[in-house]
Amino acid sequence: MSNLGFLAVGYGFIWLVLGSYVFSLARRQGGLNRQVDRLERELELTREAAPGR
């Protein structure tokens, strides 16, 4: 493999690792947001069901 080939592999690896970490962070954030939304909906629903509290 040529010098530039090694360079490409190296840089490719760096951004692959960083990219997949950022991707996993984004997925996790999405999951958390969904959970919060669901909890909020439940809270609002019960508030309507039990007014005056």
Partner: peptide, 11 residues
């Protein structure tokens, strides 16, 4: 349901 309603909207 009451406990749900009482839960502070902390989240």
């Amino acid at each position: 349901k009451r406990t749900f309603a009482e839960a502070p909207p902390a989240v």
